[in-house]
């Protein structure tokens, strides 16, 4: 692999729960991961072994206690683990996209506007952004009669596809995917697989948590197995 897009090393993370009598949960211990352009790494292992925590740390959503998260951001290498909030926000605007398991719906905002918003933030006209949002929603099987409605009332699978569309509408050098097909049927899962393969072929570096074996087999290049000891081993 030439220079990785994302290289995390020596990652330690624990939670100190003050309200539970100061219990300390050690979640990640010296975790390491590197992913290059056009490559997809999956985090595998039982629930509670720290997969989601690592993914959240890679997005700056969890603060790590130690280690580096080196990222290629606008042609330069930066350490997300040591970055000030403004830099983390800038990285999230242009370099790292993240698809969470659940859509955080915003009251009153229509699905199509929610999906178009990241493009508008990047300077696209409202009209162009909406056209692209509509096309992507259609591609993900969300019929146009739903586009104008706020997604709070959508089914779990529909919300998940709106969530995916909101991220996939922009090109990202790095994508973090947390179970993007958990509530989808086979047809829709296959649509998402196509989409992931497409961005991968365009050079996107992907780190994902995929419990779905079909999705995993279709897109993953390398599997990192997480275990109770929280350090991973390669398979």
């Amino acid at each position: 692999m030439n220079q990785p897009m994302l290289h995390a090393r020596g990652i330690n993370k624990s939670f100190l729960l003050h309200l539970q009598g100061g219990v300390r949960l050690d979640v990640l211990h010296e975790a390491e991961l590197a992913v290059g352009a056009g490559e997809c790494i999956t985090l595998a292992g039982a629930s509670g072994t720290g997969k989601s925590s690592l993914l959240k740390a890679l997005y700056g959503n969890y603060l790590v206690d130690g280690g580096e998260i080196l990222i290629r951001h606008l042609g330069q290498q930066v350490d997300l683990a040591a970055a000030a909030p403004e830099l983390v926000l800038a990285i999230r605007r242009t370099t790292i996209g993240y698809v969470s398991q659940f859509l955080r719906a915003i009251p009153r905002i229509a699905a199509i506007d929610l999906v178009a918003e990241p493009l508008v933030d990047r300077g696209a006209s409202g009209h162009e952004a909406k056209l692209r949002a509509a096309a992507l929603l259609e591609r993900l099987g969300i019929p146009s009669r739903l586009h104008g409605l706020p997604p709070a009332t959508f089914s779990g699978g529909e919300q998940q596809r709106v969530n995916l569309a909101r991220t996939f509408i922009c090109p990202w050098p790095i994508l973090l995917l947390d179970e993007p097909t958990a509530s989808l049927d086979t047809t829709n899962r296959n649509r998402v697989i196509d989409l992931i393969r497409e961005v991968k072929s365009q050079g996107c570096a992907i780190v994902g948590i995929f419990h779905d074996p079909q999705l995993h087999d279709a897109v993953s290049d390398l599997r990192l197995l997480f275990s109770e000891s929280t350090a991973h081993s390669r398979t």
């Binding site: 939670f15 003050h18 309200l19 700056g60 959503n61 603060l63 909030p85 983390v88």
Partner: peptide, 18 residues
Amino acid sequence: SGLTDQVLDDPHHAYTQL
């Protein structure tokens, strides 16, 4: 203090956790 989602999802201080 910090990024909004980081402070709310990974609060460190006892008061923020509460």
